[in-house]
Design a protein around this nucleic acid. Structure first.
Lengths: 144, 144
DNA sequence: CAATAGATGAGAAGCTTTCGCATTCGGAGT
DNA sequence: ACTCCGAATGCGAAAGCTTCTCATCTATTG
């Protein structure tokens, strides 16, 4: 159950925390921002403050429940930590994110980290590019 | 000459633009923020506005003169585009940045991009980790 | 050297995120 | 169930980075 995850993190099981965790589970592979979470919960009729969303997401991150990614755009996005490590490829134009796992890159990455005296943490590698899927990207191009 | 670079970008050759470009050249491999540039120029006795620094850096980026990186920390850092492609490994604690180039990763990266219908642009890949160099990182740990 | 389109600086404003504080709530012990 | 205390919440204020507005100034062209 979700409440155990929260309890294990040393946090009290509260309505906002449960709702946020449920929402992240429902979001699947989608990467949501704090604002997204806030708005979705408001629309779902929940009474919640934006500050709480930020606080809870930060706590969940510290507890390893969620992962935070700072892609281009000036804000953070979050996704549930499902235990299976993966990296991201992000479109710098439309913000689209795909997840991938590549053993070769994983190994080379490790070598490079050693060489430069780094230790790789959880979320570690992001490829930036432009996605060629016209739908999403075209829209952004017009705005920019 | 630097002024030709600016001219080629379709921009007027002005004092602020020249000073910013010179400063980036002097900064070498260091990754500087807009605020850094602003303060350095002020200290050097230049009369310049922060808004101008942001504007010029954005224009230089669009012109391919500089590269912008959004590492963790909530702000952008810039470096001169020297034509030689490289990627970054960044310490999420102290912000230290190292540059590297790895042919193997470069190829795999390309494959992954194709697979997910992406096109890789200029600055494309960032590895995040913790640097093990006690000096810099220890300082940040105290603050956090 | 004059005209004009473009660039600048200063401050206001925008956006994401954090902080401070009074109020409310979860959960351990009775 | 009841009480109590520390923890959590929501709100508004505030902080940090970045962009916008606009009046003034400047680089370029003829």
């Amino acid at each position: 159950m979700e409440d155990q995850h929260i309890r294990n993190a040393g946090l009290k099981v509260t309505v906002p925390r449960m709702k946020i965790l449920e929402l992240l589970e429902k979001s699947g592979q989608r990467h949501v921002s704090a604002e997204d979470v806030y708005k979705m919960l408001l629309e779902a009729g929940e009474e919640i403050g934006l500050a709480t969303v930020y606080r809870v997401l930060t706590q969940f991150e510290a507890a390893g429940l969620v992962e935070r990614n700072n892609f281009e755009g000036g804000y953070s996005v979050f996704e549930l930590n499902r235990g299976q490590h993966h990296d991201h490829i992000v479109c710098v134009l439309c913000g689209k994110v795909a997840e991938f796992y590549d053993e070769t890159i994983e190994k080379r990455q490790q070598k490079i980290a050693e060489k430069y005296d780094f230790e790789i943490g959880d979320h570690s590698l992001t490829i930036y590019g432009h996605c060629l899927n016209a739908d999403a990207c075209a829209k952004r191009n017009e705005k920019v």
